[in-house]
Structure formats: structure tokens, C-alpha cells
Design a protein around this nucleic acid. Sequence first.
DNA 1: TATTGTTATACTCTATAACTATA
DNA 2: TATAGTTATAGAGTATAACAATA
Lengths: 136, 136
Amino acid sequence: MADEDLGALFGRVVRRLMHAEQPVLREHGVSMWAYAALSSLAERPATSQVALAKAIGYDKTRLIALLDELAREGLVVREPDPADRRAHVVRLTPAGKARHAAIRAGIHAVEAELLGPLSAAEQRAFRAMLTRLASS
Amino acid sequence: MADEDLGALFGRVVRRLMHAEQPVLREHGVSMWAYAALSSLAERPATSQVALAKAIGYDKTRLIALLDELAREGLVVREPDPADRRAHVVRLTPAGKARHAAIRAGIHAVEAELLGPLSAAEQRAFRAMLTRLASS
DNA sequence: TATTGTTATACTCTATAACTATA
DNA sequence: TATAGTTATAGAGTATAACAATA
């Protein structure tokens, strides 16, 4: 057990998290990437599709089919940007906002269970440090 | 920034870690999974290939080609288990041990840099909590 | 019957290049 | 010349089923 690599530790935790989240996502009929897109758009609309792709760390070419699907379900809309007619502003519809909120509730329950082994204070500290590592 | 999902935070950190580790792995001519296998075998030999696959969270059918490659390079050996003639014990050769130690040094340098934003005490606390989350 | 190592196959992801329309 | 959105294609990664040998 002597000093395991960070990569191995992260791998195990992330695999466990993804496994626990999958039933929630499937229940709401969305993929992990679809949820990532909905989350980003819930925070703020995207000024372009490339901007959205970058925000969630996804490929711009794969984002297209994803947005097609979300648009078909009426969860997002693509509006041409009057200022730059190449670009599409992407935003959530009311249905998209509602869907995101519902999924997010389920996801948060799963997260709480994953962090269960830590005390409340530890959970706050862990989250804070992880946030710093993610945005440094 | 309000209370981002754990999944998004982990995703960003892990992506950054993998990106930083890639040059180290490439320099030593191994894939991420090869390094995971070497690390597990450095800890202790595997009693069977399925055991190794489970230990590193990999698929047993994909592990075969990986071990073929590592064996071709003389880093691991597969020995038939006298007690169970279906199973192969997998262990590192001296060359495998040396290769693993060399890669590990590079990986640890990358990890130290990733954790740089945290103080030494925070790094210890973070690692300890991550270990608890990984093994609970 | 179940399990180990293996192969084969189908499927999903992912990366790359190229095209169009704008800028 | 560069960028946004898009499409097509090739390659890598993944999952599944099946098989022979052994338990």
C-alpha cells in the first residue's frame, strides 16, 4: 500500500464515481457528456459551440451530434449570433433547465454517498483543495 | 463557480494529470495501462492474469496483448502456476523492476508539480483523504 | 459447472483532415 | 489568413461472446 501513485488513486475514485452516477444518468436518458454540457449551460449560455466544447473539455466535432440530440429533445437551442454570423449561441430551454436540475439532484446524492467516509469538515476541505487543483 | 460537481472537478484534475504524465510515459515507451500493470506487479506478483486485470481495473481480454508486449520487451514473465495449471503467475523481471523505478521517478516529479498549489501539510491531507475514498 | 487464458467480432469512442461560410 | 460549424473517415479503445484446457 506504500505511497500509491496519484494516478492510480484518482483512477479508482473516478471509476467508482462514474459507476455510481451511471444509473442516475440513464434514468434521465442522458450521457455523461450531455450532463456536462447541460451543467455548463446552466451556469451560463455559451457564446459559441467551440467555447462550450472548451468549457467542458470535449471535442468540438463530437459536440455537434450531442447538441443535435439535446436540441431534438428540446433541452437546448442554437441561435445564430447577430454579431458574428459564423457562431451559434447555445442556451438551455426551460425544459433543459428543469432536466438539468432534476439530474443534478440525483448526482449530488451520489456524490454525498461517495464522500461519506469523510467528516463534514473533511469534505469541505477536500472539495476546496480539489477546486484549487482544478483551476490552478 | 457555485459548487461545481465533483465529476467536473475530478475530470479537470485527472485530464491535467494525464496530460502532464504523457511525455514521461512516452519517453519510456509505455502506455498508461502498461505503467499501471508494472506498478501493480512491482508491489507484488500477480497470481493470475485475471487477478492482475482486476487489480488495475482493466479488462482481462485487453490485458493479454499488453502482457504480450511487456513480455516481448523482457519486462515481465508469465510462469504457469504448478498448483493450477490454467493460471499464469505474472512477475516483473529485473529489467521490469528497473524500468518501473525509472518511470515512477518521472511520474512522481509530475505529481509533485500538480500538487504544487497545496502546502506540504495540505498535500498529505489530500493524499490521505483520496486514499480513503479509493479504498472504502 | 465454473474458471483461466485466449481469439474474434462488433461497437463505441476519439483524432484528424477537409470543406463552407463567414470574419 | 483565420475561425465557427460541419462532415467524413480512419484509428484506438472497449465490450461481448465463444472456445480449449483445466478445476
